[in-house]
Design a protein around this nucleic acid. Structure first.
Length: 587
DNA sequence: TCGATTATGATTAACAGG
DNA sequence: CCTGTTAATCATAATCGA
């Protein structure tokens, strides 16, 4: 039974209480940045003539600012610094809109003054506080979000970043969540002992109670399903499964997993999101919260092929009656590369490769390894073995000759990942870029297994929106499943990658249409509507947003979801949400 | 300028042993 | 429970040569 050390609030800090309280307060008013109504910029295009073709201008107009105002600001500050521009735009907007009557009761986080009213029994009930409040009650539409956030005690800079990332139409509690997570990411632990940090984290988590429900029929029950609901700390709701088999893999699933999706997550469209499993703390909580509180499915591709690939997938697909691609790929190093067997030392126990990354081991390193092992009659001493094994694991080296290790060739990586041979070869791509593109891609068998449920649902094919397409992992997976591709909108920044997908599309005699696009940020509501009108909606939206700032290999800029590239996740969410809304309207 | 080559740790989670 | 250890990790940036 719960209890544990959660103490009876005696002299506990009431982080929880207070935070919950604030959240509820914030939540009770759904504020939006002034948009829409400001668009009517009196059509005066005189000043914007020069900038008629500016991407930046379109960007901000797309966010809901008037063309007139945007061009004014751009002329004044240039279009280099978008953050600065946004700041100015928000300031101008705030000045223009008459200061609204402050209907909010904003409690100062540092004072517990007025916490005594109707909220004080929260500490008792807060675990059951699912009453999920009719949100958006006092819809004071003209309130300025930025102003409100600042009044709440957030720094203007933080608020601006949040608004920029989430877009002007995001709800206030999304913004607050974002800032909270950002703060935690930055906060040094100095002030907060672990437990309180967790609770603080939990604050940022959600008012809307996350509801993961999973049930296992058959053998094992995942520990504490119902316990979680009672004892619930939102904390450990996200843990990596061990073994990392998600909701099941073809090779070792002797039990069936059922899940119930949150209402908001149910399609159409179906969506499928992917990123690295070993992201910094809190990242997957945030991603999950944005993607309609769907529980991530963490899967290691080592259960599908000969290389590990620990990834998290968030999707709203059915998970029953999945089937794997055939033929099943080799699942050990020896099966995948039989020629290595002859040279494989008995003291190298590896049977699986580690994650295929974007860079390979250097020649110097393989030379050092050769020198470390070649001067011994029998097996090298322990320290040499350890050194060699560590490096081989780190750089995924295989034995290709006596005392000789080497990194994988690009076509070997292609094979391991499930792509057709030479998929990334030729057509103007360098070897270095090949490694990079492959290292950033899906493992086809893994993804195809998840997408296989679509086959019987769409015998006539699907319309696919593929964001961050890369070298077309989603397209290849669906094609190999035998699911016809009717219309594919593929958004990918890298030109060589777009060429690869285009080339594959033509080589495989696709009957459908492939639409290219370069930047997800240019995919706005208008563009989507235009596309969807031509072929009517999307059946599936796939995307693995950039992992640069999440991946452990990044020593320089592992900045989390706010990172320069990885923050494009919010564009995945933005676009998914747009399509979702458009499609629910059209029904 | 492009492509190839090389060196560059920190963050977590799992694990082992008290 | 605690603490130290092991292990894995969709990368960036500087440099060099053609």
């Amino acid at each position: 039974m719960g209890g544990d050390d959660s103490g009876v609030a005696s002299d506990n800090f009431d982080w929880n209480t207070e935070d919950e309280l604030e959240i509820e307060n914030y939540q009770s008013s759904c504020l939006t940045v002034p948009n829409g109504d400001a668009v009517t910029g009196s059509g005066d295009a005189s000043s914007s003539a020069v900038l008629a073709n500016s991407k930046v201008l379109d960007h901000f107009v797309g966010m809901g600012f008037s063309r007139e105002m945007v061009s004014k600001v751009i002329q004044e500050y240039g279009e280099e610094n978008e953050a600065k521009l946004l700041e100015e735009l928000l300031t101008y907007t705030a000045l223009e809109s008459s200061p609204p009557p402050q209907t909010l009761i904003v409690t100062d986080p540092s004072s517990s003054g007025n916490a005594g009213s109707s909220w004080d029994d929260f500490s008792d009930t807060d675990i059951f506080s699912d009453e999920d409040m009719e949100k958006n009650i006092s819809d004071s539409e003209n309130d300025d979000t930025l102003r409100t956030l600042v009044k709440m005690g957030y720094k203007q800079e933080e608020a601006l970043i949040a608004i920029e990332r989430l877009g002007p139409n995001s709800s206030l509690d999304e913004l607050v969540d974002f800032i909270g997570v950002a703060q935690i990411a930055k906060a040094e632990d100095a002030l907060l002992p672990p437990e309180e940090k967790l609770q603080y984290n939990g604050y940022a988590k959600s008012n809307k109670r996350r509801f993961y429900e999973c049930e296992v029929l058959g053998r094992k029950k995942p520990r504490g399903c119902e316990k979680k609901i009672i004892n619930d700390d939102d904390e450990e709701a996200l843990h990596l499964p061990n073994p990392m088999i998600g909701f099941g893999v073809p090779t070792e699933s002797n039990f069936i997993t059922l899940r119930r999706l949150p209402e908001d997550a149910i399609g159409p469209p179906y969506f499928y999101y992917e990123n690295v499993a070993l992201a910094p703390k809190g990242v997957w909580q945030t991603i999950s919260r944005f993607l309609y509180d769907v529980e991530p499915e963490f899967v290691d591709s080592k259960f599908f092929c000969a290389a590990a690939r620990k990834r998290g997938y968030i999707h709203n697909l059915p998970i029953q009656n999945r089937f794997p691609l055939l033929p099943l790929p080799p699942r050990t190093i020896h099966e995948a590369f039989p020629l290595t067997r002859k040279w494989w030392p008995s003291w190298d126990p590896r049977t699986k490769l580690n994650c295929l990354q974007t860079c390979i081991g250097s020649a110097k390193l393989t030379e050092r390894i050769r020198k470390a092992v070649e001067n011994y009659e029998g097996d090298p001493p322990d320290h040499a073995q350890k050194y060699v094994l560590d490096q081989c694991r780190k750089w995924n080296l295989v034995w290709v000759g006596r005392n000789k290790v080497a990194p994988l060739e690009p076509d070997e990586v292609e094979t391991l990942l499930g792509f057709p041979r030479n998929h990334t070869r030729g057509g103007g791509i360098s070897r270095t870029d090949r490694y990079k593109s492959l290292g950033n891609s899906f493992q086809i068998d893994t993804v195809a297994y998840h997408l296989s449920v679509l086959k019987e649902m769409y015998p006539n094919g699907i319309n696919l929106l593929s964001l961050f397409s890369g070298i077309g992992g989603a397209e290849v997976a669906l094609h190999r499943l035998g699911i016809p591709l009717k219309n594919v909108v593929s958004v990918e920044k890298s030109e060589v990658n777009r060429n690869i997908v285009r080339s594959w599309w033509e080589q495989t005699n696709q009957k459908g249409h492939l639409y290219d696009m370069e930047d997800v940020r240019e995919l706005d509501a208008d563009r989507l509507e235009q596309l969807m009108n031509t072929f009517g909606g999307f059946d599936l939206i796939v995307g693995g947003s950039p992992c640069n700032n999440l991946a452990g290999s990044n020593r320089v800029s592992r900045d989390g979801l706010e990172g320069k590239e990885s923050s494009l996740f919010f564009d995945y969410f933005r676009i998914l949400d747009l399509v979702k809304n458009m499609m629910s309207k059209c029904r």
